[in-house]
Nucleic acid binder design. Structure first.
Length: 438
DNA sequence: TCTGGGGTCCTAGGACCC
DNA sequence: TCTGGGGTCCTAGGACCC
């Protein structure tokens, strides 16, 4: 017998991607630990229990849209017995890692695209599993068995098509959760493409969708067929690339290494409205601490900090004030206390009494790598013990929970803290919240 | 009463330089 | 009086993603 790779060189050299995506991810995480939630209409709410960020199929069937405010659907919820959970990011993050670990067993070349989606670069791997479809089924089965999470898999020669394949797998029960576009002939592919709105394409949102419609581009197929050069002049390189991808030419490669973040943000709406500088100070200090942790985790330094405060834009009966300011730091730092000092100085300049605030936050900007930090020849104002201090702080907070050690400015009242009234236990990351078998 | 929190990339346009 | 043109860098804002 001849080597299959050799007898078939053009096939195995062509790029081939799989997109694996967990169905209704947050909802599925909750269901994995509470079987009684199966087949029950349920949503998971955003921070502050604001709006629905994950919906079970039953809820989608009721016509409830992504991002719909919870308070607006309470009547419907009562009527249909919709259960709402607060979001539990400790649980979702951990479950995501577990699912990713299973995928890695199938294919080492993996790009974790988001908390619930990964691209796999196949390069002939599927042959080991008897082809795309059976590999896809194998993935579904093992992820479900090992993590309790249901996934769908889409295969195609480009990332954009793999996203579309995944979408088909999700929407059409006939695919049984796995759709291999590479096995479709052109007319079959086009028949499917003609059935879906152009905004289903990865990279085409509401706005671009509207503009495309004026050009007579309504379906996925229309976008695949239009001359890409036209898109280039009217929309730019990104959409041109998307069109090429829909035609089967791979333009987007795997991004295997996770690049360091170029900006780090921490912000949140308040659980209850805030008026005093004192409370804003607490909250901003809290955000600086959270962002500082992320900054040090990727071993970066920040050269500038942005602070903003906002009133509630939905309250037409209240005076509105949105303000933000960037401040360059005298030298890059990763020290939470140093960052706080500057952030609070900015906050004082922004603050105006007589407004009712709804949200505040900070962003760390001008990030640079640790390696590039050089001790200044000039006298540095940075405390030489800063690095050790931050290391100790991170270690303690890692072990005992965020905020165990914090600057005094973070305060103790936290009247502004976000609402999270129906959070499930952190089953997989806290010893005292482990699920109990009865 | 109650309306999320992150990120990225691209482009247009202004400032500035020669 | 004549009112160029090309290049770079930066920023703000818009669009997208999950």
């Amino acid at each position: 017998m001849s080597d299959p790779a050799k007898s078939n060189p053009p096939e195995s050299n062509k790029p081939m991607f799989a997109l694996v995506d967990v169905n209704n991810f947050y909802v599925s995480c909750e269901r994995a630990f509470e079987p009684r939630l199966q087949n029950v209409p349920m949503v998971v709410l955003s921070n502050n229990d604001g709006c629905a960020v994950a919906r079970s199929q039953e809820v989608k069937d009721l016509g409830i849209k992504m991002g719909q405010p919870w308070f607006k659907m309470k009547d419907l919820a009562k009527q249909h017995g919709i259960i709402a959970y607060s979001s539990n990011y400790a649980l979702y993050g951990d479950m995501s890692n577990r699912a990713t670990a299973v995928l890695r067993q199938f294919c080492p070349d993996i790009e974790v695209y988001s908390i619930d989606e990964s691209f796999l670069q196949m390069q002939g791997v599927a042959q080991l599993y008897g082809g795309h479809t059976s590999m896809g089924q194998g993935i579904r089965q093992r992820v479900l068995q090992w993590t309790g999470l249901p996934v769908c898999v889409g295969f195609a020669p480009t990332k954009t098509l793999a996203k579309f394949a995944n979408h088909l797998a999700k929407k059409n029960p006939a695919f049984a959760g796995v759709c291999d576009l590479a096995s479709f002939d052109v007319s079959t592919l086009h028949t499917w493409m003609a059935q879906y709105d152009v905004t289903e394409v990865w990279g085409v949102g509401r706005r671009i969708g509207e503009r495309l419609r004026t050009l007579g581009v309504n379906t996925v197929l229309d976008l695949a067929k239009i001359e890409p050069k036209i898109l280039r002049t009217q929309f730019g390189v990104v959409l041109e690339r998307t069109a090429h991808e829909l035609r089967g030419t791979s333009c987007l490669a795997m991004e295997d290494v996770i690049p360091d973040k170029q900006q780090i943000m921490s912000s949140r709406s308040f659980g209850t409205p805030v008026q005093t500088l004192y409370e804003l100070t607490e909250s901003v200090s809290w955000h600086v601490a959270a962002a500082g942790e992320k900054l040090r985790r990727q071993r970066s330094f920040s050269g500038a900090i942005y602070v903003f405060i906002q009133t509630n834009r939905f309250r037409e009966d209240q005076k509105q004030y949105n303000a933000g300011l960037v401040m360059s730091l005298p030298e890059p730092t990763n020290d939470t206390l140093e960052l706080s000092k500057h952030a609070l100085r900015v906050l004082k300049r922004l603050y105006k009494p007589d407004f009712i605030y709804k949200k505040c936050g900070i962003m760390l900007l001008d990030l640079s790598e640790e390696l590039h930090q050089q001790a200044s020849f000039m006298v540095s104002s940075i405390d030489p013990r800063s690095a050790q201090k931050m290391q100790a702080l991170d270690a303690i907070n890692e072990r005992f929970g965020r905020g165990m050690i914090r600057s005094a400015a973070c305060g103790t009242s936290k009247r502004w803290a976000m609402r999270s009234e129906a959070r499930s236990p952190r089953y997989t990351t806290q010893w005292d919240e482990l699920p109990v078998a009865k």
